[in-house]
C-alpha cells in the first residue's frame, strides 16, 4: 500500500528536475526586484504573497518602470489567469478534500507543481492519498523559490550580467509551451500571441502583453469553432473515418510535463 509518507516523498522527487530551472529563475527575480528599486523586504514578501514566478518578474519590471498600480495589478491578473485552467483541471480530483486542504493546495498551485501533480493524478491507482504527492511537489517548489529569490535579493547586482541568468525564464516557458502545441488552434494561438507581443512591444505600460494574450486566445477560439463546424459537416458526409484525421490525439508521455489537462473532451 502506498502511504502518505511515500506519496509525499515521491512528490518531492518528481519536482526535483524542475527545480533546476527554478533556481536561476528565482535568483534573477531577486536581482530584478532589487534593480527595480523594490526594498528587499517587499521583494521577498512578494515571493510569499504572490508566489508566481512570471507574474512577480513582470510586476517587478513594471514597478521599476513607474507604471501606475492599477495597470500593474491588471497585468498580474492576466498573467496569472492561466492558473484558472489548472484549477479547473485539478478540481475533480480534489473535491473530496476539506476546505483547508483545498486552500493550501490552491496556494501552492503553480505551473511547475501543476505539471507534476496532474501527471500523477492521471496515472491509474488509488487517488485517496495523492494530495500528499501534490503537497510534496508544491512544498519542494515553494521552499526552493523562497530560498532562491532571497539569495537573488541579497546578491543583487553582484551576479554578473554576462551569465544571462534572465534567459532561464523564457527557456522554462519554452519547455512548458512547446510540448503542448498539439493542434492547429493551440499553435496558432501561441504564434499569434508571440507575434502581436513583438509588434506591440512599444506600447506604454507593457500593455502589449495583455493585447497579445487576448489576440492569441481569440485566434484559438476562432479556429476551434471553425474546426468543430468542419467536423460536424464531415460527420454528416463521410462518417467517423474522416473525423479521426482532424482530431489529433493528445500525446501522453510518462514523465512529460504538461501544462494543460489534455483536451480530450469536447473535440
Amino acid at each position: 500500500m502506498i502511504t502518505r509518507h511515500s506519496e509525499f516523498l515521491n512528490g518531492i522527487k518528481a519536482e526535483l528536475p524542475i527545480l533546476m530551472g527554478v533556481v536561476p529563475f528565482g535568483l534573477i527575480y531577486g536581482v530584478a526586484a532589487r534593480s527595480a528599486g523594490i526594498p528587499p523586504l517587499a521583494g521577498q514578501s512578494m515571493s510569499f504573497i504572490v508566489f508566481a514566478g512570471s507574474a512577480q518578474f513582470v510586476t517587478a519590471q513594471l514597478i521599476g518602470a513607474g507604471v501606475p498600480a492599477g495597470i500593474i495589478i491588471l497585468t498580474g491578473f492576466i498573467v496569472n489567469l492561466r492558473h484558472a485552467l489548472y484549477s479547473a483541471s485539478l478540481a475533480p480530483y480534489l473535491k473530496r478534500l476539506n476546505i483547508r486542504w483545498r486552500m493550501l493546495l490552491a496556494y501552492l498551485l503553480t505551473d511547475e507543481a501543476y505539471a507534476v501533480a496532474i501527471t500523477h493524478y492521471q496515472k491509474p491507482g488509488d487517488i485517496s492519498r495523492k494530495h500528499w504527492y501534490f503537497l510534496g511537489a508544491g512544498l519542494a517548489l515553494w521552499s526552493t523559490w523562497q530560498a532562491s529569490t532571497a539569495i537573488g535579493i541579497v546578491l543583487g547586482n553582484q551576479l554578473p550580467a554576462s551569465w544571462s541568468l534572465d534567459f532561464a525564464l523564457p527557456l522554462t516557458f519554452i519547455a512548458l509551451v512547446v510540448p503542448n502545441l498539439k493542434d492547429r488552434a493551440g499553435t496558432a494561438a501561441a504564434a499569434t500571441a508571440g507575434i502581436v507581443a513583438i509588434l506591440t512591444a512599444g506600447l506604454p505600460y507593457k500593455l502589449g502583453l495583455i493585447v497579445a494574450t487576448f489576440a492569441g486566445i481569440s485566434i484559438g477560439i476562432f479556429l476551434e469553432s471553425m474546426k468543430s463546424k468542419r467536423t460536424m459537416v464531415l460527420k454528416g458526409e463521410d462518417g467517423a473515418g474522416q473525423i479521426r484525421s482532424i482530431v489529433e490525439t493528445p500525446v501522453g508521455c510518462p514523465g512529460a510535463t504538461t501544462i494543460e489537462h489534455t483536451d480530450k473532451e469536447g473535440k
Binding site: 489567469l81 509551451v177 508571440g194 513583438i198 512591444a201 502589449g208 502583453l209
Partner: peptide, 27 residues
C-alpha cells in the same frame, strides 16, 4: 465546468507564455 469556459481557458497558458517568450527571443 462550462465547455465554453474550458475551451477559452485552454488557450490562456500558451498565449500568455508565448507573449513573454517571443519578445525575449526576437527583440
Amino acid at each position: 465546468i462550462p465547455s465554453f469556459l474550458q475551451s477559452t481557458l485552454r488557450f490562456v497558458p500558451v498565449a500568455v507564455l508565448s507573449a513573454i517568450i517571443f519578445p525575449a527571443l526576437f527583440l
